[in-house]
Amino acid sequence: MAIRRSAAKRHGLPSVVQLRLAPTPALATAVQVCNQAATYISHLAWQQRVFPILDLHRLAYHQARAHFGGLAAQAAVRAIARVAGAYANRRATKKRAHIFRPHGAIPYNARLMSWNRDARIVSLWTPTGRVDPAYTSQACPECGWTSRANRPARGHFACTRCGLAGHADHIAARNIAQRGVAGWAAVNQPHATGLPSARRDRESKPPASVGDS
């Protein structure tokens, strides 16, 4: 999956950074939790007939964060905005609660995702904590040896200890996936119970997203 976002101005000119992320259990959890939170907030909005974003924020923000223990403040804010937008864009009368697909795309903004262009490092929020790929292109996924010498050339990885070799991006993806699996094992995935099972409506596509395309 890929993300495009505006980065900080570089040499006085704005730039766009394109990132390609390897799916991990931690990121999959983030997608599911955010969509569960959006459905939960949608259910509250529909029950209370509260749809404007500011009023919905007052109603649902603290309830959603209390219900989903791993939900970050900014993730809750984005979920509320998605719900308000979904109801604002509906043509028909609001006769049922809007349901968000469990693996639907979710928006990541600068508070949920940070990018260090010079260090080629991206940090992403997940319910298990930040996914930080620091040194993933220098670490060997087989023996664990981390060294700058493992990168003899741009785009190439060769472990100086065990001899494992491959494309640097592929090695980094393996390391990120391993970190995600380690975080997944320590998490009880939140589950939104008691929500309606009406048909799933189409969701509007956010400008920057993580999840299924």
Rank of each mutant, 00 (worst) to 15 (best):
A134E: 10
P102S: 04
R120C: 12
R101G: 15
V83W: 01
S137L: 04
R111L: 11
S137R: 07
R120I: 02
L112C: 02
W125K: 04
L124Y: 03
N116Q: 11
P141V: 03
A81D: 10
A88V: 10
A81K: 12
A134R: 15
I99P: 06
Q138M: 07
R111V: 02
C140H: 13
A84I: 03
T136M: 08
A92R: 09
F100Y: 02
N109R: 05
R130K: 11
L112Q: 04
A88G: 14
Y135W: 14
Y87S: 10
C140K: 13
T128F: 08
P107S: 05
I106S: 01
R111F: 04
G85N: 11
I106F: 01
R78F: 02
C140E: 09
T93P: 10
A119F: 08
A84T: 08
I106L: 04
V131G: 07
L112F: 01
R111P: 00
F100M: 02
R78K: 15
A97V: 09
P107F: 00
V77E: 15
L124R: 03
G104N: 01
W125R: 09
I121P: 15
E142Y: 14
V122Q: 03
P102H: 02
V131T: 14
C143D: 11
A84Q: 06
V131W: 06
A79R: 00
I106W: 00
R111S: 12
R101P: 15
K94I: 12
R78Y: 02
N89W: 13
D132F: 13
Y87L: 06
P127T: 05
I106P: 03
I121Q: 13
A84P: 01
R90G: 11
R111H: 13
R91M: 04
A97C: 13
R82Y: 02
R82L: 11
T126S: 14
T128I: 09
M113Y: 02
G85R: 11
T93Q: 09
R90D: 14
P133A: 13
Y108R: 02
G129V: 07
R120K: 14
R120A: 14
S123H: 06
P127R: 04
R91E: 08
A97S: 15
Y108H: 02
H98L: 08
A81G: 15
Y108S: 00
W115N: 03
V131I: 13
T126F: 07
G104M: 00
H103L: 11
N89G: 15
N116S: 14
A88F: 15
T128L: 13
T136L: 04
Y87T: 07
N89R: 15
H103C: 08
D118A: 14
P102R: 01
F100D: 00
A134G: 11
R111M: 05
G129I: 05
V122H: 03
R111E: 12
K95P: 06
I106K: 00
A84D: 05
M113G: 02
S114D: 08
N89M: 12
A134V: 14
H103Y: 08
L112H: 01
